[in-house]
Design a protein around this nucleic acid. Sequence first.
DNA 1: GAAAAACGTTGATTTTTGTCAACGGTTTTT
DNA 2: AAAAACCGTTGACAAAAATCAACGTTTTTC
Lengths: 193, 193
Amino acid sequence: MYDLFFQKFNEKIALTAEEEALVKQYLTPKKLRRKQYLVQEGDVCKNICFVEKGALRAYVLDETGDEHITAFALEGWTLGDLSSFIKAEPATWNIDALEDCELVLISKQAYDELLQIMPKYETYIRLLMTDAYMALQRRTTYMISLPLEERYLAFTQMYPTLFQRVPQHMIASFMGLSAETLSRVRNRISNRK
Amino acid sequence: MYDLFFQKFNEKIALTAEEEALVKQYLTPKKLRRKQYLVQEGDVCKNICFVEKGALRAYVLDETGDEHITAFALEGWTLGDLSSFIKAEPATWNIDALEDCELVLISKQAYDELLQIMPKYETYIRLLMTDAYMALQRRTTYMISLPLEERYLAFTQMYPTLFQRVPQHMIASFMGLSAETLSRVRNRISNRK
DNA sequence: GAAAAACGTTGATTTTTGTCAACGGTTTTT
DNA sequence: AAAAACCGTTGACAAAAATCAACGTTTTTC
């Protein structure tokens, strides 16, 4: 149930069996069916979720009601509307399941308490935030500096599994493009080889 | 010399005078003249810098030699090529001073050691990363979901001081636009009021 | 198992943005 | 103090991307 969670945790910082048992007390498992919401815009995001199995996406709606995907999460990734979670403010993101999911949830209270009582948890979170921040910096750097075809190729290499698993119009949305434009970009790339 | 650094530190987590003195031993002051580099692409980014005074920018060069600004830093902000710093890999960013600067540097060795010996430093870094990550998420969400004029207004509110202090063609670059387009966006906004 | 919805692609057209050139007015350099 | 570089804007034009519509296929729903 928590296998992947602790595998990833231990990759960042090793835990003893006792420590794992302690952390486990603060976690809640949750199953989510395809198309179900984890968070809706306006709710406070009460949990951060770790994906044991399945796939999720986060998106925002614009004034014309169009969806813009801001993030994905596959097995081993962590997702939530972080600002809403940390500041206990209404979420601006919607998060729903693209496939049936098995998740590990950490509530805000559990998060705060673990940070207080367990230095290794703070180290884990520090490293998680650092990695997430570096990944997002890379994404934004590519966004503003690479021409479209190179950007698509770079993203493909950055997220190989994701691009196989998720419909292309969602990838387009994630990249800030229309589905048609992405289709044409892919066409140009395969023609030039 | 380190006034603003410790002011910001204490806003996140309070230090005693003794603790401040300890941290101070790990810091190095540095002055940078306008146009001087803190890091150049290809170097390993050996320090993260905190801005006591002045302004810096980070940028990448594309294949045609054009600059794309990825980040700015004003007084009280922290900047570096984080991936390069953490992984000791060659930097992909260039960082230079837009104005004469007074900086506080933390070397990788000092960073690692402080994290080891001082739990409050780890808390400080965790909060710094969390805040930086949330800010970057907001920026990228705006990037893909807001139409140009709203995006410009949102950025103006997000970084009011920055937009007054930095030339507009750099703001344009930061937003992934040409200088001419930004000029026209501003024009449309002032006409519609 | 049939109907409906979702998906990816293509073509025609419109809208948006970039590019190039020029300008007057700064600021910086020497 | 003069020369050079930089800055923001504008106009004319070219390039890129979005939009709209249609299509055959696949997947989901009931």
